[in-house]
Amino acid sequence: MLNPQTEFFARIKSALPEYQNMAQSIAECLAISVNEAYKKIRGNSALNLQQIIKLANTFEVSFIYKPNQSPTVTFDYLSMNKESLSMLDYLKDLLKNIKQIQQSKQKHITITTDDIPLFHFFKYPELTCFKLFFWSDSVMNNEAKFDPSLFEEEIIDISKELNQIYLEIPCTEIWAKDTVHGTIEQIRYAFEAGYINATKAELITEQVRYCLTDMNMYAISSKKTIDPNHTFNWYNCDVLGSISYLVDFKETMLCFNRFNTFNYLKTEDQSYCEQTKSWMHSLIKKSVSFSGQGEKHRNKYLYNAFTECDNLIREINNS
């Protein structure tokens, strides 16, 4: 097991772009020689408190220390609410996190989810705006009508960039039995409650279909782009316990747990991440593969999802 200092440097390394020399960056940050920087990275020379603070602030990486036998886990908490954070701020923070992941030489994201991962939505502007609208307090509190034109252009631009970056990161997604159902029900509720008109409701439902068609293409080739390094593994597990994103940098890991719709808790606690990784691996063993040769099960899953979309469009047109 790594000690807190070497673990700290492992997280800094993961946060740096591939082209950036870590020892040189540490030396410049602490105003020490490169040789001394190597000693600190290897754990042969101890960091003092001021140096820890400076490194943490410079590279935006937490130093985590837990007393022996302590079961505590430290999380960073990003809360999305109208008093403290705008939707644009939320997406900018998400973009900062995913860019940091993309820049790492070794990376892989494993997701367990009962809702379509939001990065897939971000390819489609109206669907993106609808999900952000529904997730906000507007539907419940302000009697607002859905109008994509009210969303800032920067929100759409960042969303598209998030989608493009996500496509370039190797990943494994484990979907629940009813992962698509939640979004369909959100569209149905918004339409029946009068928050969205029939034309927009049908358009957004069609974009859900496009999103699922994308998933099918990724699964067939087991990659999300023409680059073979952008691997994609898709599984179905009937029962999932939580919505979690585990980022594996090989030398260190990072975990995001979603709650309250789209707020999240983020931790770099390696023991917690190891337990999460073990849990995800056990889920995969109980899951059905949709990637590559899993055509039969994938087609059945997508047929049911497309049927849900068709039924909703039929309801909208007959209303």
Rank of each mutant, 00 (worst) to 15 (best):
residue 2 L to M: 12
residue 8 F to S: 04
residue 8 F to I: 05
residue 11 R to D: 01
residue 13 K to L: 04
residue 19 Y to N: 12
residue 19 Y to F: 12
residue 22 M to A: 14
residue 27 A to V: 03
residue 27 A to K: 01
residue 30 L to E: 08
residue 36 E to C: 07
residue 37 A to E: 05
residue 38 Y to G: 12
residue 41 I to G: 03
residue 44 N to D: 13
residue 46 A to R: 12
residue 49 L to E: 03
residue 54 K to G: 06
residue 61 V to A: 00
residue 67 P to I: 06
residue 70 S to G: 11
residue 73 V to M: 09
residue 74 T to K: 14
residue 77 Y to L: 13
residue 78 L to Y: 13
residue 82 K to R: 10
residue 86 S to Y: 03
residue 87 M to P: 05
residue 91 L to K: 10
residue 93 D to A: 14
residue 99 K to M: 10
residue 100 Q to S: 15
residue 105 K to S: 07
residue 113 T to Y: 06
residue 114 D to W: 15
residue 118 L to D: 04
residue 126 E to K: 10
residue 132 L to Q: 04
residue 133 F to P: 00
residue 140 M to E: 14
residue 142 N to I: 02
residue 163 N to L: 12
residue 164 Q to W: 06
residue 166 Y to D: 15
residue 166 Y to L: 10
residue 170 P to I: 00
residue 172 T to L: 00
residue 173 E to M: 02
residue 176 A to F: 04
residue 178 D to L: 07
residue 182 G to V: 14
residue 187 I to V: 12
residue 190 A to G: 06
residue 192 E to C: 00
residue 194 G to V: 04
residue 199 T to H: 11
residue 206 E to R: 07
residue 216 N to A: 01
residue 224 K to Q: 13
residue 230 H to I: 08
residue 244 S to A: 08
residue 250 K to I: 09
residue 250 K to M: 08
residue 251 E to F: 02
residue 255 C to N: 13
residue 258 R to S: 13
residue 261 T to M: 06
residue 267 T to H: 00
residue 268 E to H: 07
residue 275 Q to T: 12
residue 282 S to K: 04
residue 287 S to N: 00
residue 314 R to C: 11
residue 317 N to T: 13
residue 317 N to H: 11
